[in-house]
Structure formats: C-alpha cells, structure tokens
Amino acid sequence: MMTGNLILVAVIGFAGGLSVGAGFVAFLTVLGLLPRLTQLTKTMKMIHYYEWAVVFGVLAGGWLSLQGNILHWNQYVLPIIGVANGVFNGMLAAALTEVLNVFPILSKRIGIQDKMVYLIMAVVFGKVIGSLFQWIYFVNL
C-alpha cells in the first residue's frame, strides 16, 4: 500500500513537471525570445546550447525554490541576478504579441509612424518607473 502510494505520488509529480516544462518551452517559443537574442548577437549556431541553458535554468530554479537551501553567497551577486532577471522580463514584456500589435495599430490610427521611437520610449520608461515605484514605495504602504 505504502509503496503504491509513493509510486502514485511520483507519477503525479512527474506528470505535473512534464506538462509545466512543455508549457514553459511552448511559451518561450511563441514569444520568439531565443531567435531574437541569437539575431542580436549573431550566434545562430549556438542555439542548441541556449536551449540547454534554458533547461538547466529551469531545473536549477525549480530545485532551489522547492528545497529552501541557503547558499551563503556574497550579497553583491544579487544585482547581477537582478539585472539578468530584469532584461529577461523586459524582453518577455516587449515580445508579448499584444504589445507588438498595439504599436502598429496605434501609430496608424493617430498617424505618427515616424515618431514610433518616442512611443516605445513611453512604454520603456513606464515599465522602469512603475517597477521602481512599486519596490521602493508601493510595497511599504
């Protein structure tokens, strides 16, 4: 009975991980983040290594967040992680198809195709200021 339960739990856990992992990769693929990064850095040949980077990143994050270990590293590693986290999230936000579809329609409607850069800047500053405001002030309310 006990062994049966254990096997059942393991199967359920494995199945859950499988679908979440597949979903995560599907999400990344839809947003086209990796192609964009390889295009920017001209490293198309390395795309397979980037795939593994994603897999190992997910594994490490998953394991560490579930185990509650403490690494006792120097605290100045944190800004590096913070920037990486931010750049990744920023690219995700930019890649969301809603965002991409907003600009063409908006700029065509109000006829400012040549001033698109300023609209993009509005979004970028909005994200940065909104985020800073939240962490520094809003969460302490």
Binding site: R36, L40, Q75, Y76, L78, P79, I80, I81, G82, V83, A84, N85, G86, V87, F88, N89, G90, M91, L92, A93, A94, A95, I120, V123, V124, F125, K127, V128, S131, L132, W135, I136
Partner: peptide
C-alpha cells in the same frame, strides 16, 4: 532592493534590446 533596483533597470534595457 539590491535585486529589485537592478531588476527595474534591466526591465527597460530588455525592452530596448528587443
């Protein structure tokens, strides 16, 4: 804040890069 402030600026950088 040691994570969060770099995170916020990274957010902007990521969008600009994209």
């Amino acid at each position: 804040l040691l994570i969060q402030i770099p995170y916020s600026f990274g957010l902007g950088l990521g969008m600009v890069l994209f």
